[in-house]
Amino acid sequence: MPSVPHTLPWGHAIVDPMTPARYRVESIRSELTGVFTLGLSPLDEPCGIGFAPGQFNMLYQFGVGEVPISVSGDPDRPEQLLHTIRAVGSVTNALQRLSPGGMLGVRGPFGTSWPTTPAEGADLVILAGGIGLAPLRPLIYRVLANRSRYGAVCIFYGARTPDDILYRNELEQWRGRFDMTVEVTVDRAGPDWMGRVGVVTKLLSAKGFSPPDTIACLCGPEIMMRYAVQALHEQGVGERQIYVSLERNMKCAVGLCGHCQFGASFVCKDGPVFRFDAIAERFNIREI
């Protein structure tokens, strides 16, 4: 396949987006059952590649295959590339078996990003479900590093059970800050759980943000996002103020192969982060 020039949002071009760069596994951290975070360092570009919050990389496990995984680390520390991965198939299971010192290939970063600049001056609602918190974590890091540029910051997170809360330590740290709201709920719990039980969309009824002045960023199961959009509408947050991250079957990551086609868009190139008004009509069509 011929090489395709691919320009990053900040103007830096990947020389050949189809050729993986070599990365070494520096760390592998178990987050939850079947969920782990790979820490990678580049062999070919010592400073690492920059990325924008919400973008993804194609991780290539040699001899097994390639998977699209959102970057989950700090965008201001590109030398330490983090990806949080759920082991659900042959490639991700092989990635889970890697150990420090192991090698893999990385293509990217690809795709659109969370609206860090348009959201400046606005209140920010970050709503995540399950492992959907991972693609939002770079946004949270970026916002907290520039906290004075944003209004109220609210993180609403839903998980299956208390044992399935991703980045629990960080959520607790963020919750301890005086300049943001962090609410967590789980779908089911035993009597020892002192926190909330219920659907994550219910957290949106908590005040703490001004709907007309809010930008909302959502990531999680699509059904969850559908109901979250509905709940945000009821609060007075319009479609142009809502951004969602979609997941589709990405292969080439540069808009050539069509595997991730979502109506008139390619999720790899036009997404994965979409402003909701751009996809609202397609969002409820089950065939796509």
Partner: peptide
């Protein structure tokens, strides 16, 4: 491959 997100294939 299924997800441009944290859960791979």
């Amino acid at each position: 491959p299924a997800k441009p997100g944290p859960s791979g294939p």
